[in-house]
Amino acid sequence: MVDGALGGLIEPAIGLARPWALLFIVLPLAVMRLAPPSSPPGALSPPPGVVGWLFAASGRAARLVAGAPGALPRLLGWISVIVALAGPELGGAALVSPSGRDVLFAIDLSASMSEQDMVTEGQPESRSERMAVAREEVGRFLASREGDRVGLIGFATDAYLISPLTHDVSAAAAMLDELTVGLPGRRTDLGQAIGLAAQILRTAPKGERMLIVLTDGEANAGDLGALDAADIAAAAGISTHLIGFAGEVEPKNAAFMREIAERANGAYHEARDPESLAAVAAEIEALAPLAAPEAEVRLKVGWSAPFLGFGLLCAGVFVWLERRDA
């Protein structure tokens, strides 16, 4: 019987919460040697001859004198109770400590994201679609953010929350597969994407708030100016990082995105191919480091209940034997 309903998460890792308690297992020897014998009040000690006669006359008397009937359950019960006291535990499932950081990733889904101008290093003849590369790198980035709450926004002419803030980073990463270029429109409304992110993050519990916008073009749609949205995000304590992602990012667009990022406590990064996008992801990861692996806490599920139960059974048998022979 495992404590609680955690049976499904147990991995074979056995340990003891209080291993020092096992030293108590020898205590009965000390009690038997050092403690004075118990002497029932008012007992008469019969002469040795009478004892010998009784011994011979009755096996039952022999049991009485020897005091042996409960010895086995007494010993087994003691071992069981001491093992329970030592706190045997099984465990292994890793617990994720929340970092207190919320990360929203906004991905440009405008028509230009379907352009095939991503050149993989060493393979100049094959070009990948921007969206496919973004999906892969962003997915890797999101899935690595264990402890953060991550969310996903897709934007073009409109902006939509694709995945709400969740600690289930793999679920958020999996939602990238659902994104379709051109679904929210053909143009790019950067202001709306930053505004939506500010709206979501502003209501989130206090902590570090980060928005990462991946876009390949200029802000060419929408009523809310991207710079105004950046001011709103900055006021909400959100650091906004922009990634210019295209085979060639126009200098005018790069300057504009740099200005947005600077106004929103962030930085502008440029990625022209899959390798540089991975490098940008690494840069951002360095800005928001995760807990060190050695700080990982693992689940421990107590297994003392079976030993307590067995000890209880031994106590019952002991009482029954004592009573039978009394």
Binding site: A35, A43, V81, G311
Partner: peptide, 19 residues
Amino acid sequence: LTGAAALCWLGLFRRRSAA
């Protein structure tokens, strides 16, 4: 509570003043 049970159990090992 397990410690309290162990203390009681320890008393079961005390010798009797048998003849």
